[in-house]
Design a protein around this nucleic acid. Structure first.
Length: 598
DNA sequence: ATAGGGTTAG
């Protein structure tokens, strides 16, 4: 800033363009640009440099602020200016600047079009920027056409371009197979190529493939770096693979891979979401350079484990050390209050968020509040809250409300809301499941059957529930009625044994949620085939007595499995840790940490 | 002068 002051005082003695140009460039190098945008614009104008390409591009790229980029590009590429006078460098700078913005990535592609139309030849730096913009926009067809240009202009062999192409295809919906094709056709792969593909698999939820590819990377003898490991850890998190995650941690230590802040964050997230939240806390306490992501990961981890009070005090600690909470941090905090039944605290933080931190609540924040009121059984209040929301309601919030109506006996209300929702979203299978469950609770079996038939008629199926379990470095996945496992016979015998022992201990099957219209005995049988019970039987058969069992479900745990797992934890003297779609359940001695609210 | 892969979310 000192330079800026000096320059202001001496501006009269700058007499030639060269000097002015140099001074502007130097100024931009020194300035904390964003808050001074208008001053600098005025300065550029006063020095007569409003059409100076060098200064303007420097301005745009240093400021990395949308207004600055718009300002620069409007002068550089005004309709009457002749693009022939510009070279690839100028376009690259503008394209890069736009590609880095939050909401104007498409403008990068506009300028790329201007560039090609004006017959300015792209150079080897152009396509990484353009592909990054495509990735940001996420339009597969656009990406494919840029891929065509890459080949046409002869940059298809460049390693940077290839790697960014993999990234681009991974970021566009439906592009993962094309990404793999580009990846497979590379003549050689460096750590960036592998990381791009592994990270791509993780992003689309193909976590097992990501782990598999990481193994291939090791066999290919390419040394992974900290960025590769972030993606691998993210895959472990998704799979709930704690053993694998621990192995990754020791691998990082052994290989001396740099523990960047991002890598520490990934480790924290992995431990928290794979069931060891205390280890996550320990890592968090030991790390330096925490970012908002570190705080949010650990707060969210505590929230998932029902440790709401601790999550809240960490949030307070975060504010105390001067870290400004963002939208995601507030979602974590509010969901912590929700999962631990801290209704008053949740309400207070919601208003603090608005009044003290000036944040406009998003639909996710309203969703947390509705969820919180519903869990606590305040269905009417939730309804009133929704009525007063100054924002478009979404189906997710309605489904939260409907579940609460069922759980808390507001069946008529639940039925009418669900019918309305089905009219709005006729092809969403879970709406029919909800309606069917409400009819079951009302004992309206005919209507329940009709709901089921309506689903069949539309060709919809219930999303199959699945349970994953990690054993001896392998991940086993069970779906309901699964017979594919080689121990299948023993597993079903075990399930029967579990059933007999549970009944003796007082377990009553919750048959009302079975969607099929079959008799009671068959319903019990259907419940026993639930993936969670198969996975527990498998674990009981294959692990020594007393070892904890960890599982990951793709859906929310059902009433019957929840009650059964409580019995099993007592009968077989096992701690059972289940991560479902929303949170963790620690079963021990016949009780669950969620205290039956989930 | 300008290049590639990464993290938190109901």
């Amino acid at each position: 800033m000192q330079y800026f002051q000096t320059l202001k005082r001496s501006k009269l003695i700058i007499i030639n363009t060269r000097e002015a140009e140099q001074s502007c460039l130097a100024l931009l190098q020194l300035c904390d640009v964003v808050p001074k945008l208008t001053q600098i614009q005025a300065h550029i104008a006063k020095l007569g440099l409003r059409n100076n390409p060098l200064v303007l591009t420097k301005f745009a790229s240093t400021a990395s602020d949308l207004k600055a980029i718009d300002y620069a590009s409007s002068f550089l590429f005004s309709p009457d200016s002749d693009t022939h006078l510009y070279d690839a460098f100028l376009f690259n700078t503008i394209i890069r600047a736009y590609a880095q913005t939050g909401h104007a990535k498409h403008k990068a592609l506009c300028f790329y079009k201007v560039m090609v139309k004006g017959q300015v030849l792209p150079n080897k730096f152009t396509y990484p920027f353009v592909l990054k913009a495509c990735a940001g926009v996420g339009d597969l067809n656009l990406g494919k056409s840029v891929h065509g240009s890459v080949v046409k202009f002869g940059f298809g062999d460049d390693v940077h371009v290839r790697n960014t192409m993999v990234h681009m295809y991974c970021s566009c919906g439906g592009g993962i197979e094309s990404a793999r094709k580009v990846f497979d056709e590379m003549p050689n792969w460096d750590s960036v190529s592998w990381s791009a593909m592994i990270g791509g698999y993780v992003r689309v939820g193909w976590s097992s493939d990501a782990v598999e590819l990481f193994r291939e990377m090791q066999m290919a003898g390419v040394r992974p770096d900290e960025i590769t490991m972030v993606s691998v850890l993210s895959a472990c998190t998704d799979l709930g693979a704690l053993e694998l995650g621990k192995w990754v941690e020791s691998y990082i230590e052994k290989e001396g891979i740099q523990k960047s802040v991002e890598l520490c964050n990934a480790l924290i997230d992995m431990f928290a979401k794979c069931g060891n939240v205390d280890k996550a806390l320990k890592l968090f306490r030991g790390m330096s350079g925490r970012t908002i992501v570190s705080w949010t990961s650990v707060i969210d981890g505590l929230a998932m484990h029902g440790r709401g009070e601790e999550a809240v005090s960490l949030f307070e600690e975060m504010i105390g050390v001067g870290v400004e909470p963002d939208d995601v941090a507030f979602i974590g905090l509010l969901s912590a209050c929700s999962h631990s039944g801290l209704v008053d605290k949740g309400k207070r933080y919601f208003s603090i968020m608005v009044e003290k931190f000036g944040r406009v609540p998003k639909i996710e924040h309203y969703g947390c509040m509705v969820d919180m009121l519903c869990r606590a059984g305040h269905v009417k209040e939730a309804l009133e809250f929704i009525r007063r929301m100054p924002i478009q309601l979404n189906p997710i919030i309605l489904r939260t409300l409907i579940s609460a109506c069922r759980a808390h006996g507001e069946l008529k209300l639940g039925e009418s809301i669900t019918k309305e929702l089905i009219r709005a979203e006729p092809m969403h299978e879970s709406n029919y499941v909800l309606l069917s469950n409400i009819y079951a609770k009302m004992n309206h079996w005919e209507k329940k059957t009709k709901t089921r038939e309506a689903m069949d008629k539309k060709g919809m199926k219930k999303i199959p529930g699945s349970t994953m379990i990690e054993l001896d470095n392998e991940i086993y996945e069970f779906v309901a009625g699964d017979k594919s496992h080689k121990q299948s016979k023993e597993i079903y015998e075990m399930v029967d044994e579990m059933g007999r022992k549970m009944k003796r201990a007082g377990y009553v099957p919750t048959t009302s949620e079975v969607l099929l219209d079959i008799d009671e005995e068959d319903k019990e049988d259907a419940l026993n085939r639930h993936s969670e019970k198969l996975a527990i039987a498998f674990a009981l058969l294959n692990t020594p007595p007393g070892t904890p069992i960890r599982m990951v479900k793709n859906l929310r745990v059902c009433d019957d499995c929840h009650s059964a797992t409580k019995f099993i934890s007592k009968i077989y003297n096992r701690e059972i840790l289940v991560r479902d779609r929303n949170r963790f359940h620690h079963f021990k001695d016949g009780l669950c940490s969620c205290r039956d609210f989930w």
